[in-house]
Design a protein around this nucleic acid. Structure first.
Length: 481
RNA sequence: GCCCCCAUCGUCUAGCGGCCUAGGACGCUGGCCUUUCAAGCCGGUAACACGGGUUCGAAUCCCGUUGGGGGCGCCA
């Protein structure tokens, strides 16, 4: 039997890292088993669903390289894949369930329900509604026919218990005294998540439902529904949730949770995928950097951990650095160009682009995230050097600063050939002349030429800067001393 | 309150009864390298939550406690 899995986000918010991991595990599982990944939009909440979030989620998924085989945008044999376009199907299913004796019309009011639940809680019982305020089926049907507003609830068999084997959690069971007669069709005629999701999983032939642990306790409802619909339940796998650094559920107050925020912060999609994959799964050996194809080869659900993982940005950034250094230099330059341009507020001309291509490899081996690159190459594109005051105070106040710069200015002015090696040779001669260590003698030049005590390697930087600008800057620093 | 789930270094994890005086990675940290910063290399720090069992033997199995997480909606 072909594996068919789905990722079914609700367009009521951005794609956050937890959702991305769920999507990724579905993707890896499908690829590993040569199955099909379906992307569905669970947008039955008309109030909170928006087109913006829908677009945003899709773009984040694509950015991560999580490709789906069937579903929204790409179509497939079960189209449409947006639940908002399948409303009739859910209504029909609800009616079918009523006719089959699995569901009934409910007119219980919010106040009644509130009071009932409050009392149950106070009495130490689970606040589980069992239909006690609702009329017998036939009477309910008649009242509904007259247009009286009401919902349809699933009738949970009681007493009873639902037991299932979760691939990551093993055997789990819930007594039906914990499962209420849940609404499947709202009084607005819209289906609830439970109905829509279950009907779709059945209709689309989903074999494995891989989702967050937050819906573990709703699973009995889905199993009961599936069976009432006359189908066999899929295999379930509930993934533990992602936590913030304080061990609490990951949320906005922990910083960025949206995948897009990491993209904007200069994280590479491959690094994000690698990092996310290892949050709750391990290939089983000491590998930390795992290629996408390796993940696909080795991923399986029974190796997924049950315990919740903390999302740790430090490790993500370290991993990103590994991926950055591994990039093709041309790709790195291309990736960084728009960032540099936006930092400068203008585009680079042809010459400047060449300069960028020249420094790029130097900063590439130093960068953790793409967004830190602009400030490292900024010195090339500002006509006037802006001296970083801390750097100036630390370096230029030393006695060797003046003589070193003055002498370097002299030597560099007379250089026949302007190349990294010639520059290095002449500056080393300068160091010898003054008996200065490279550390002491070169820092003033670095600050003079780049404005900062931290920069890409000096000799290369000067070569790229060019003789004219180098001399100008050294002179300017000298004047300021 | 009730139900469910979980528990190895600060963090991600290896470990599926003896190979564990618990391994790797991030972080932190000492050193080397070095023109700054990184990178790289070498070293260090640090964990089986606790208490009972089972067993010749337990990080690994069972029970309890504690701690953490999730759920209990006409949200998903």
């Amino acid at each position: 039997m072909t594996v068919r899995v789905r990722y079914a986000p609700s367009p009521t918010g951005y794609l956050h890292v937890g959702g991305a991991r769920t999507a990724l595990y579905n993707f890896l599982f499908a690829r590993h088993h040569g199955g099909v990944l379906i992307l569905r939009s669970d947008d039955t909440d008309q109030e909170r669903s928006t087109q913006e979030y829908y677009d945003e989620i899709l773009s984040a998924l694509r950015w991560l390289g999580i490709e789906w085989d069937e579903g929204i945008e790409v179509g497939g044999p079960h189209a449409p894949y947006r639940q908002s376009e399948r409303l009739e199907r859910y209504r029909a299913a609800a009616i079918q369930l009523v006719d089959g004796g699995h569901a009934y019309y409910s007119f219980a009011t919010p106040d009644q329900l509130d009071e009932f639940r409050k009392e149950a809680r106070a009495a130490g019982r689970a606040p589980v509604y069992d239909g006690r305020f609702d009329p017998p089926l036939e009477e309910g049907r008649e009242r509904a026919a007259t247009g009286e507003p009401g919902s349809i609830r699933f009738r949970v068999p009681r007493p009873g218990v639902t037991t299932f084997t979760d691939v990551v959690r093993d055997d789990v069971s819930f007594g039906h005294d914990q499962v209420e007669d849940f609404v499947i069709l709202r009084s607005t005629g819209y289906p609830t998540y439970h109905l829509a999701s279950t009907v779709d999983d059945v209709d689309f032939g989903i074999t494995h439902v891989i989702r967050g642990e937050d819906i573990l306790s709703s699973t009995p409802k889905h199993i009961l529904l599936t069976e009432a619909l006359g189908a066999a339940p899929p295999t379930y796998a509930h993934l533990s949730l992602l936590m913030g650094p304080d061990g609490k559920k990951l949320s906005k107050r922990h910083g960025h949770t949206a995948v897009a925020a990491y993209r904007d912060a200069g994280i590479l999609p491959a690094a994000m995928v690698n990092y996310l994959a290892l949050l709750g799964w391990s290939p089983g050996d000491d590998e930390t950097i795992v290629s996408r194809s390796d993940m696909i080869d080795r991923f399986d659900l029974d190796a997924v951990l049950k315990n919740p993982a903390i999302f740790d940005t430090a490790k993500l950034e370290w991993m990103n650095g590994v991926y950055v250094r591994d990039m093709d230099p041309g790709a790195f330059t291309a990736a960084v160009l728009p960032l540099v341009e936006s930092d400068l507020g203008r585009s680079l001309d042809a010459t400047e682009r060449e300069e960028l291509a020249a420094v790029a490899p130097l900063v590439q081996e130093r960068a953790k995230v793409l967004t830190e690159v602009p400030e490292q190459v900024r010195f090339l594109y500002r006509g006037e050097v802006e001296f970083d005051e801390d750097s100036w105070a630390k370096v230029m106040t030393k006695p060797e600063a003046g003589p070193a710069i003055a002498d370097a200015l002299d030597r560099l002015a007379g250089l026949v050939e302007w190349s990294t090696s010639a520059i290095e040779a002449s500056l080393r001669a300068m160091l010898d002349e003054h008996g200065l260590s490279a550390r002491k003698g070169l820092q003033p030049l670095r600050v003079a030429a780049t404005g900062s005590s931290v920069s890409p390697p000096l000799f290369e930087s000067l070569e790229i800067l060019g003789r004219e600008r180098t001399l100008e800057r050294l002179q300017k620093a000298l004047d300021r001393l």
